[in-house]
Write a protein that binds this DNA or RNA. Structure first.
Length: 360
RNA sequence: GCACAGGUGGGUGAGUGGUUAAAGCCAGCAGACUGUAAAUCUGCCCCUCUCAGGAGGUACGAAGGUUCGAAUCCUUCCCUGUGCA
């Protein structure tokens, strides 16, 4: 899932994303809540319509932002008080308001409001944080069940609503990949999030108790927060065993090309990461032959394609020398082309993974 | 020719007697980036050694001088800009 935090995958337009075969995008409740505002998006017909994205969207609840904004926040039992990174104004998110916001945005998949436990954290702190996330998960679900029919597209006039119905509910055959039976109810899907830090026992407990609350999909959160990568893998490998195989299992916030293959191999169904898009903007490109820092002087006269084994439009058309020049010249086009390539590389990789799974 | 204003490291531009190999910015080089406060951030960026902490050399237009000590003060010269002839 490419990340489009503010209803924009930085550097590329929606038609490019469609051409790349992107099936689902990530958006962020926190950012959209601050600007342009949930009510504004709702009035404009929901996030799909607002950003003109006909396929699926997943919104993150804002739990992670609260974590990353760490000097600007205050966590209590009820929720989180934080200050806007835009203007310093004070706001409160609770499980209820985070879900209400996500209903207002109308994404296909929405996330329970969680606390992303910082790393490192001792066992007591990790457990206390995990317990809080569990209580918030129950509150998230309760609020969602009571309000899930209020999404913009479900309350819109029929014709318009049909257009805005998310892809998974529409059973859109034009998209690649096997499709399951359409859901009976045309509502959003609220996923729970497993926490528990780096403590495997707590991870197990968090998984079991989150399952007890009951969600149509489960995420593993609280990773990629500064821990060594080997530890991330260990926690995922252990945690996933406690999650049902007949529900989507979503690992939040990873990873490198090597890692996403590894995690898929462990059974992870969904992943999101800013890495391909951010790295692209910073001149770091992923190729079949490893990472390439296109800003390096060695590429100044390199007439070859970025990745000879890549079929993307950038590799088909432009040389490394040109891409380096665009980057060095600070051209916006560098960001566009680099992002197109990195996303293309990631999506190709995932297609290969799906193909491999299909082949057993 | 005269009168002002200037000449600082690849560029720009601070510094106007010692704590200055000389701020900042740009360019250049390298690195980081993993549920996006990120077109961002970090390091290097005169030369030579280095046990990486440092050591030595050269340097603020040129040449002389004053001084314990000069990019900073003085003299002459060269050059640039502007104005007047």
């Amino acid at each position: 899932m490419p990340v489009g935090t503010v209803a924009s995958v930085k550097g590329v337009s929606q038609d490019i994303l469609e051409d790349l075969g992107v099936q689902i995008l990530l958006g962020n409740t926190y950012h959209l809540y601050l600007r342009p505002g949930i009510e504004q998006v709702r009035k404009l017909g929901g996030l799909h319509k607002f950003m003109s994205w006909p396929r699926a969207i997943l919104t993150d609840s804002g739990g992670f932002q609260v974590f990353s904004l760490n000097e600007l926040r205050k966590v209590t039992e009820d929720g989180v008080t934080f200050r806007s990174h835009l203007d310093g104004s004070s706001h409160v998110f609770t499980p209820e308001s985070a879900i209400a916001a996500q209903i207002g945005l109308g994404a296909d998949i929405i996330m329970a409001f969680d606390e992303c436990t910082e790393h490192p954290a001792d066992r007591a702190r990790t457990q206390q944080s995990m317990e809080l996330t569990l209580r918030w998960a129950a509150r998230s679900k309760k609020y969602f069940e009571e309000h899930k029919h209020e999404v913009p597209w479900s309350s819109a006039p029929q014709a318009e609503a049909e257009q805005q119905i998310p892809r998974y509910a529409r059973n859109d055959k034009s998209l690649e990949g096997p499709l399951e039976e359409p859901l009976e109810e045309k509502t959003q899907a609220l996923f729970g999030i497993v926490q528990g830090g780096m403590d495997l026992a707590l991870r197990k407990e968090s998984a079991e108790r989150t399952i007890e609350i009951g969600f149509p999909g489960y995420a593993i959160g609280g990773l990629s927060v500064g821990e060594p990568r080997t530890l991330t893998r260990e926690v995922v490998k252990s945690t996933i065993q406690h999650l049902p195989t007949d529900k989507p299992r979503y690992l939040m916030g990873v990873g490198t090309p090597e890692e996403i293959v590894e995690y898929a191999n462990l059974g992870i169904d969904m992943m999101d990461c800013v890495l391909p898009t951010r790295a692209a903007r910073h001149g770091l490109l992923f190729t079949s032959e490893g990472k390439i820092s296109i800003k390096q002087a060695r590429y100044i006269g390199d007439q070859g394609p970025l990745d000879p084994n890549c079929g993307c439009k950038v590799c088909a058309r432009y040389s490394r020398a040109y891409l380096r020049h665009l980057y060095a010249s600070n051209e916006v086009l560098a960001q566009v082309l680099n992002t197109v390539h990195n996303l293309s590389f990631y999506l190709d990789l995932m297609r290969t993974v799906r193909h491999s799974i299909a082949l057993g």
